[in-house]
């Protein structure tokens, strides 16, 4: 994905066609943006929901996998985490952990 996007951007710049300025529109971004509804934009929670901003990728992966397997107690995250493949969990964690 990244490679092909990067490739198209290089091609576009070469051709003088506008590139997307701003956040990336990757599969990781799409998946992670669904987290923001409950955890706040970029994972920065303004209230009683836990923030998920600034958490290292390995820690996010483990937490999500433990929610998925039922190892980690949850109110609703167990029901959410079951909706994602291991690859998707890695994509979410990768994107979230890199938000500046």
């Amino acid at each position: 994905m990244r490679k092909s996007l990067l490739f198209s951007m290089i091609t576009m710049l070469a051709a003088g066609i506008p590139a997307v300025a701003g956040a990336e529109v990757s599969r990781g971004a799409i998946l992670a943006s669904t987290c923001f509804s409950c955890h706040g934009t970029d994972g920065k929670s303004p209230g009683d929901m836990p923030s998920i901003y600034g958490v290292p990728a390995e820690s996010l992966v483990k937490t999500l996998q433990d929610f998925k397997s039922g190892m980690r107690p949850a109110t609703v995250m167990d029901r959410h985490a079951k909706g994602y493949s291991d690859d998707e969990i890695h994509e979410i964690a990768d994107y979230l952990s890199k938000i500046k």
Binding site: M12, I17, V25, R27, I30, T34, C38
Partner: peptide, 21 residues
Amino acid sequence: AAAIVTSLYDLPLPEPSHVNT
């Protein structure tokens, strides 16, 4: 928003994903 932005620049749109809570 992602669909519109990618379409404007002829970029591929990643597979959709949604949640409702």
